[in-house]
Amino acid sequence: MLSVQDLNITFTLYGRGLAQKQLTVITQLDLDVKAGEVVAVVGASGSGKSLLAHAILGILPDNAQVSGKMLFKGEPLTLNRCQDLRGKAIALIPQSIGYLDPLMHVGQQVQRTAQLSGLSRPAAKAAVDRTFARYRLAAIVQRLYPFQLSGGMARRVLVSTAVVSQAELVIADEPTPGLHPDVVTETLNHLRELASEGKGVILITHDIEAALQIADRVAVFYAGTTVEIAHAQDFSNNKIRHPYTQALWRSLPQNEFIPISGSQPTPDALPDGCLFSDRCPWVTQECRLDRPPFLQVRGAPVRCIHADR
């Protein structure tokens, strides 16, 4: 349904005076999503998760140059096509109620989303009623303002906005942090249901555990690149390939809780070779020369020349 290949995003910034500076924030990013599938995008903050979402929705700022290939249902995703599709075929489930209008009843806002996606007013109203009922939101909730919602209710309202738009591709941006485990599971199950209905779902999260609860595949981002696209079961089967993916998995409190030191390189100081080379336990001279290409190892792509060890 969606295929992103070798995406690069560079920002042009002004330094001192009129001197311009190029900052490459996304390098060689890859991702593909099929209909009926949940693909989780996992990585630390600053790894390019949200920028990818912005690129797919065509809402990057004007000073961004994008290169690489983005295809939606086989056709290139140009800026014009993005504008036509977003809110209709491609929908975003935002991070928090901060994205809603604080002065408008939530029912009205969800209905507006449905109308913008092309439904008539009565059809949009019916879609809102149906969707709120589906997510156990009482009719009275439609007349509440965003600040009056509890954390769990807010999540269900935000999911509703994506459901009424009849989108084929749904992007959920960090839907779970700080929520009680029951609410997390409920939110994730709603995303899983959307995939079962044939939609493609991208789950953007830093929470690898949440991702593994529902994802079919997990794309691991690091410093603006895709280091690995693993199958969800690879984690518990000890088949994950990239040293960064393994480090993330090991550092969970229920596993070994052992972190690797250091931090992700900043866009203005990226290493020449592999982006993980300065923290990698497997690093060799060869790693520092070139950016590693995607290699197929144990049935999935990984950007590491030592992954088959």
């Binding site: 996992v42 990585g43 630390a44 903050s45 942090p177 700080g178 830093h206 929470d207 690898i208 480090a247 993330l248 998995w249 550092s251 969970l252 409190p253 809780f257 052992i258 972190p259 690797i260 030191s261 931090s263």
Partner: peptide, 17 residues
């Protein structure tokens, strides 16, 4: 108070240690 709820697993473990 939820000191590392917004952070990735590696950064979480790093801060807690």
């Amino acid at each position: 108070d939820e000191m590392t709820a917004m952070l990735d697993a590696n950064t979480q473990a790093l801060i807690w240690h």
